[in-house]
Write a protein that binds this DNA or RNA. Structure first.
Length: 405
DNA sequence: TCTGGGGTCCTAGGACCC
DNA sequence: TCTGGGGTCCTAGGACCC
């Protein structure tokens, strides 16, 4: 028996962070506004012209007015300032974004309960079992989001997630796009390959080297050619995607697999000269990670670190422990052990700590979240069992040791 | 004045076990 | 004694996404 044709929606909030800021500061409407840079420790910083910014931040979101000036997500703010020196910069206020995220998702599920979270400002919906026709449903969803938040969104509705996502981008902002299978050649094939979710800069360059620029060209590309360049698995996925084929289900529940905290320093730090500063930062990251674990009632069986050197090269180290841990001291011990296995001979710009292989969260009870973690404070040996290897103890020029201990 | 922070998934090699 | 395959776990790096 054939499965019934699916009906999937992708809903994407328009310039989400910037739009939330405009709700809070409506006098900025119509101006080029950019969200990015450092968190503003709770206080609402006044908007600052981009030209006055000093630091290592990137643009998180910009209003359409700022985009028109050439300012885009991921761009270094220092570079954005050259395009739009008078654009106004606001530090991100994540608590506010989470609040509006909760509001719009709650409004959507009253209409379409099968929702998959894709981050703070995006969702997929499985509309297959709903009766209403797609256009009416789309308009209802958009109206519900606007009523709940005062914000606009763009919506694509199609037979799968891939096409729904492409559709939601076709008419931004405040769009509603229905894509049927018959629309693929006319509306999807002319688009550049990078519009396919999962084709990033690397794959785009690889395809371009084969003379493939549009989704339509990819759809009819020689299979053997693609296999040689990308391997059988990825080649098959590329061809299917270009032909609008995507069988992924809408997944309504998923547990976190890892948690991490990282920070880029205001200036590059030297592993020896700035040892105590680095140690303080490391402890702070481990403390925040432990808080995050506690908030989820989870424990980690792997602990890892991430370093980024001044030249932007990144290394990671990871350690599997004897049992799950959640306490600061265990995370710290694991992180320090990882740090001993990495060359600390040049300046650093970033340090991060990661908790992986998370155990199932504690059960919710009728009386609220259980206070005790399943593996909470037991077995402090786990992270320290191998800590007595060469390199622990006295710091040397070759091994500056802990901010490692 | 380049290049944030938090995630997921994939690959690939070596260890180890059957 | 020789010659294997698989399967799983661990680790590091990288692509990609929001």
């Amino acid at each position: 028996m054939n499965a019934p044709a699916r009906r999937i929606a992708h809903l994407d909030m328009d310039a989400f962070y910037a739009s939330v800021e405009l709700l809070r500061q409506p006098q900025l409407r119509g101006l080029p506004v950019v969200v990015g840079g450092r968190r503003a420790n709770g206080v609402t910083a006044p908007p600052m012209p981009l030209r006055d910014y000093q630091g290592r931040g990137v643009v998180t979101t910009s209003t359409y007015e700022a985009r028109a000036l050439g300012v885009h997500s991921g761009m270094a703010i220092m570079r954005a300032a050259r395009h739009a020196p008078d654009a106004l910069l606001l530090p991100p206020s994540f608590d506010a974004y989470r609040h509006y995220s909760t509001l719009f998702k709650a409004a959507v599920v009253t209409i379409a309960p099968l929702m998959e979270n894709r981050g703070i400002d995006e969702i997929y919906l499985d509309l297959t079992d709903l009766d209403t026709d797609s256009r009416a449903l789309g308009l209802r969803l958009k109206a519900a989001v606007r009523e709940a938040t005062g914000l606009s969104c763009s919506l694509g509705i199609a037979a799968n997630k891939l096409l729904a996502k492409i559709g939601s981008e076709l008419d931004k902002p405040d769009g509603l796009t229905l894509l049927g299978p018959e629309d693929v050649p006319r509306r999807v094939w002319p688009l550049p390959v990078a519009k396919i979710n999962g084709i990033g800069p690397k794959a785009t360059r690889g395809l371009q080297a084969l003379g493939i620029r549009t989704i339509g060209e990819l759809a009819v590309a020689d299979a053997a050619l693609l296999e040689d360049a990308f391997g059988a698995r990825f080649a098959l996925w590329l061809r299917e995607s270009a032909n609008g084929v995507d069988r992924r289900p809408v997944v309504t529940e998923s547990a976190a697999k890892s948690l991490s905290r990282e920070t880029t320093f205001e200036r590059d730090l030297d592993p020896r000269d700035d040892r105590s500063r680095l140690s303080t930062i490391l402890v702070g990251l481990c403390e925040r990670l432990a808080q995050d674990l506690a908030a989820k009632g989870a424990a980690a069986r792997t602990v890892g670190i991430k370093l980024r050197y001044a030249d932007f090269r990144t290394v990671t180290r990871e350690l599997t422990l004897a049992g799950p841990v959640a306490a600061v001291r265990d995370i710290l011990a694991g992180a320090r052990e990882c740090l001993r296995r990495v060359p600390l001979d040049r300046r650093l710009r970033l340090l991060g700590v990661r908790a992986g292989s998370l155990s199932a969260p504690a059960q919710e009870t009728a009386f609220g979240r259980q206070a005790e973690l399943p593996f909470g404070d037991e077995d402090p040996r786990s992270a320290q069992s191998r800590a007595s290897s060469p390199g622990s103890g006295v710091a040397t020029a070759r091994n500056p040791g802990p901010w490692a201990g």
